[in-house]
Design a binder for these strands. Structure first.
Length: 110
DNA sequence: GGTCTGACTAAAT
DNA sequence: GATTTAGCCAGAC
């Protein structure tokens, strides 16, 4: 059996999963990792590279506490919060308000 | 090819 | 309940 896309193997899956996050919703690294059978650190690693790709709503991915742990890696530390605010997500003190309700389970898409 | 780092998480303290 | 420890996998050096 030959793998069709050895390069894309996980990275493509992660990006597709992130792009599948509905507007106005957020999810966590661990949730995506669990859905893809990977680990949370891997998601963070791929998301770090996502800036060089297109249409990756990385701002919708936060850590399990709903904290915008990756905001510093955006162009501006406030960019992530601004993008979330545009989608109706309230971010206060670098944390998503009512994160538990806004949480989107990647497994629900599968 | 061993070692280090990382946009994480869960468990222990 | 906040802080620390350890574990996890993939990529860079």
């Amino acid at each position: 059996m030959i793998n069709n896309k050895p390069i894309d193997n996980h990275m493509q899956l992660v990006f597709e999963m992130v792009k599948s996050i509905p507007k106005g919703r957020v999810t966590s690294y661990g949730a995506i990792a669990n859905a893809l059978g990977l680990h949370a650190r891997i998601i963070g690693y791929y998301l770090h590279k996502s800036h060089q790709y297109d249409n990756i709503p990385a701002h919708r991915v936060v850590n399990r506490n709903g904290i915008l742990s990756g905001k510093m890696h955006f162009a501006n530390p406030t960019a992530m919060q601004s993008l979330l605010a545009k989608e109706g997500i309230i971010v206060k003190n670098d944390k998503v308000v009512d994160f538990n309700s806004l949480f989107w389970n990647p497994l629900d898409n599968i």
